[in-house]
């Protein structure tokens, strides 16, 4: 990994040159929120955006897409939307979210639909200063050491730019003249200072050590029923979570009845029908059971399996749930009111 510098005033020019690699996407405003959208005009990018409504998982596992077209004797996979893309402006938590999806979709059972989209996409990170809903420091996802091709760190009137892959190196070379390779001790001081500032801004701080133990001990807690009484079971928490990745598939026939598509769409373990199996048995009919599963997955099972929670602290569930059920509230409830650092 090497570091370069880019003057802030040169950002737009550089973004423009990224378009020669592929479609450029980044955060833009939508009402009072932000979404990742295609940047035809690079000046539309919302550099102040903290969290988008949907995380970048939407690029790699679209909410609804066709896996393949079938006819009576063959099937053809559909990759129409797979094209070279540059995603600009991913914050560290979202990059960590992608790294979790990578582990799930690229390792033991590679998912061709995820892989093709992932391989065609360059990731450019952007540093951020947290707001009161960010809890990435607690999940240790507030900084990135990998998982990106380039990472921009705001530093006064410049960006420190980390090159994280050979593709990142290629991307820099698209407009090398804009970059300065001279890094000095002052830059290091400024960077360390910036890190201290960022770390001091977290309002949500939880010690998640030993979370699986606490979850285990809370198995029969009344908490789950209390939450279930409030929970609307709308599944919005799953949709906006950068690491929730469950899906459902269904075959949709053409009217010819001879051909059709296999469609895949996001699902949520909060849906009542999620654990419904053939024969009509539902393993988690009670909403309390489903809520427990959701948070067990985030804060226990994933830690046991992968050594880290599957919450990256992005704050989207805090921003989204209409009845304020979210990972911070659940951790608070499970641990008693955590002392805010």
């Amino acid at each position: 990994m090497k570091a370069l510098k880019l003057k802030k005033e040169d950002l737009y020019a550089y973004l423009e040159s990224l378009k020669s690699y592929g479609e450029l996407w980044g955060p833009v405003p939508r009402g009072e929120r932000y979404v990742y959208a295609r940047l035809t005009n690079v000046r539309e990018v919302a550099l102040q955006a903290l969290r988008t409504i949907l995380p970048p998982k939407k690029f790699f596992v679209p909410p609804r897409f066709n896996m393949f077209r079938y006819s009576e004797d063959r099937y053809t996979e559909v990759f129409d939307d797979v094209k070279p893309r540059v995603l600009f402006g991913l914050h560290p938590c979202d990059i960590h979210g992608l790294m979790i999806l990578d582990e799930l979709f690229l390792e033991r059972f590679p998912d061709p639909y995820y892989r093709k989209r992932r391989e065609a996409t360059a990731i450019i990170g952007l540093s951020c200063i947290p707001d009161d809903k960010c809890m990435a420091r607690s999940t240790n996802t507030h900084a990135v050491e990998g998982g990106f091709d380039l990472a921009f760190n705001e530093l006064g009137d410049e960006y420190l730019v980390w090159v994280g892959s050979s593709l990142g190196d290629d991307l820099v070379r698209l407009n090398l003249d804009l970059f300065n390779e001279e890094i000095d001790a002052q830059d290091l001081q400024k960077y360390l200072e910036w890190r201290r500032k960022r770390d001091s801004r977290y309002k949500l701080n939880f010690d998640l050590t030993g979370m699986p133990d606490i979850m285990e001990l809370s198995w029969d807690s009344d908490l789950w029923q209390e939450l279930a009484d409030k929970c609307l079971a709308c599944g919005a928490c799953s949709m906006v979570c950068p690491t929730c990745n469950c899906y459902n598939i269904r075959d949709v026939s053409d009217l010819s009845l001879e051909s059709g598509v296999r469609e895949r769409h996001w699902d949520s373990c909060m849906n009542k029908e999620y654990a419904l199996v053939a024969g009509g048995h539902n393993f988690r009919e009670a909403r309390a059971e489903r809520l427990k599963l959701y948070y067990t997955h985030k804060l226990k099972a994933f830690i046991t399996e992968y050594g880290k929670p599957s919450c990256v602290g992005c704050g989207r569930c805090i921003d989204t749930c209409p009845v304020n059920i979210n990972v911070a509230e659940v951790i608070r409830a499970l641990k008693g009111q955590e002392v805010k650092v």
């Binding site: 009072e32 929120r33 909410p63 919005a236 699902d267």
Partner: peptide
């Protein structure tokens, strides 16, 4: 469909 309107509403990234 078994999921509520909110699911697709999120897919479409509407403001809640």
């Amino acid at each position: 469909t078994t999921f509520p309107v909110c699911a697709e509403c999120k897919w479409n990234e509407n403001e809640c």
